[in-house]
Simulated scan of single mutants.
Amino acid sequence: MADTAPFLSLTGVTKSYGPVEALKGVDLDVHAGDVLALVGDNGAGKSSLVKILAGAHPPSGGEIRLKGEPVHFASPGDALQKGIATIYQDLAVAPRLSITENIFLGSELTRTIPGLPGLHLLDKRRMRREAGALLTRLSVNVADADTPVERLSGGQRQAVALSRALRWDARMIIMDEPTAALGVQETRLVLDLIRRLHAEGRTVVLISHNMADVCAVATRVAVLKGGRKVIDRGIDGVDADRLAHMVMTGREG
């Protein structure tokens, strides 16, 4: 069953905050290698769904399956251990730390000293080398991996956050409004990063209000409205204007 099942499958997922129903029985399949865009107006349920997928909030009801097997994410760290990384709009980077330090934050590499097996030191050289390799893999040119992240552009910071997810070998990467507040050139860089993840066979869930960005990189789109999934289809034949109409009306026609 696991060989043919979607990478991640939601069945009848609900989420309530007291009397408020944010999600009302959402069914959603995320297939390996998809770039699935989640779109909808404010209050449609996107944020609640992302927090459930990320392991930040438990669902109130329904079932989640990972590669065909029931799964419960106890925390974002638990979701990450199971191959799902989430990159929020604020990126959760430490601006004053270097690129290398951000990529390896919480998973630093160490080395031993000959003759002192109990003593471990940070292996800065290896971390710097691997950080550079991860950025090269994403076709991002940064002169020095010791550069503080606060000196990077918005698109480059996205690359650092993605490199950290790749460092953990995440198979599914959730990107929450990755192009928000970016200029044209930086947006192009982020969209190219998503294309590279797709080319690697990674699964991407993209949350965006920018319909043009969605149409540029997504393979599928799911429209949420009032806490329900109302549309789930391939992106072929859909342009930004039509997608905006689908979001507004909740209908394909």
Rank of each mutant, 00 (worst) to 15 (best):
I174H: 07
G43L: 07
L134G: 04
T179Y: 05
V204D: 08
L66W: 06
I235F: 02
T219A: 01
A244P: 10
V35I: 12
I103K: 03
G43T: 10
D146R: 13
S163E: 12
G183Y: 05
D29S: 15
S48F: 08
F104N: 01
L121F: 09
P19V: 14
E63R: 03
A37G: 11
A244T: 14
L243C: 04
H72Q: 13
A222C: 13
R251F: 07
V204F: 09
G115D: 13
R188F: 01
L206H: 06
R228M: 07
G250S: 07
I231K: 03
G234H: 10
T187W: 04
D176F: 06
D34Q: 06
K46H: 09
Q158V: 14
Q89Y: 09
P76Q: 00
V204I: 15
L243P: 04
G118E: 00
A180T: 10
V221Y: 00
Q158T: 10
V238I: 15
D78I: 14
H198S: 14
L182T: 08
T100L: 01
V13I: 14
A131E: 10
N102S: 11
S75P: 13
S75A: 15
L8E: 05
F73M: 05
L91H: 09
L182P: 08
I52E: 03
H57Q: 09
K24D: 11
R233P: 06
Q156N: 12
E252Y: 00
E101P: 06
R171I: 08
L138R: 05
T203W: 01
D169V: 13
R111F: 01
L105G: 06
G33T: 14
N42G: 05
R171L: 04
V230G: 02
S47V: 12
R196A: 10
V214F: 00
P6T: 06
A181C: 08
A165E: 11
N102V: 12
D239T: 13
L66F: 08
S75C: 12
T110I: 03
I235C: 05
S153P: 11
L119Q: 09
